[in-house]
Design a protein around this nucleic acid. Sequence first.
DNA 1: TCTTGAAGCTCTAGTGACTAGAGCAATTAT
DNA 2: ATAATTGCTCTAGTCACTAGAGCTTCAAGA
Lengths: 138, 138
Amino acid sequence: MFSIGDLSRRTGVKVPTIRYYEQMGLVAAPERSEGNQRRYSRQELERLAFIRHARDLGFAVEDIRSLIELSGHPEQPCGHADRIAEEQLISVREKIAQLKRLETELERITSCCDGKTVGDCYVIRALSDHALCADEHI
Amino acid sequence: MFSIGDLSRRTGVKVPTIRYYEQMGLVAAPERSEGNQRRYSRQELERLAFIRHARDLGFAVEDIRSLIELSGHPEQPCGHADRIAEEQLISVREKIAQLKRLETELERITSCCDGKTVGDCYVIRALSDHALCADEHI
DNA sequence: TCTTGAAGCTCTAGTGACTAGAGCAATTAT
DNA sequence: ATAATTGCTCTAGTCACTAGAGCTTCAAGA
């Protein structure tokens, strides 16, 4: 049996976050010790590791809830799990594209800043005057 | 004079967001009409456009507060504004790098999913077993 | 066995940047 | 004059945690 602190060290999920996941119903409420402290089994350790891994990959808590639900029905077709992952991939790609546009714009803004005072600072001017932007970044 | 709705249409910032910015002290509380409705000048329109533009570029509200503060002192050296923009650029680049790692991992996970049931679905297995990951993605 | 310090408990509230809704009042167009 | 739209304030919700107060329990050393 693991204490909540053991679980935290082994999975890298912080203690208050584990309690939060329990409140959200992502992990089941575990057994308690005589003194009312949480005691986890290996199975619960594995579920938390699963959650940690999925969060690292950017899945939303609701997605993870679905994935856990699915993993409990190994006989079902896996199209749904696949779809969740593919949607996540699409959303990650969209975020990358958006951030690259911002990168380009910020490079342009910062590289042009050779003014000595705020009055002719390109950063401030670029922000004040959208027309200075090379292209639309939103 | 512009109503809050005019301002919203001209800047693309939603009405409740304008009121939120006022509460946060990013925009000053404007004049009011006889009937207590907000009435904005052109100057306030421009400030809101500045804020919108900076938000589009991913600047945090606190950064924008600093940039506004700086733009009110055009005689000062602009190093501070430049630094804020450069830090933003660094943080955008870090986010891109992180998202690219996730993209790679998700591509691998989704492309391998040819199982018919959840039991042999690569998506679920990859999430359950971190060892299946090609490299560390966090 | 006693003590001490770390770790655990619950509960509330805060983060950032908005967003939604209720229940009104003012303005604008017909 | 009336109806539709827009505006007002206030509270609470979003997401995924994080922080803190004030208490109890546990584990290890003396």
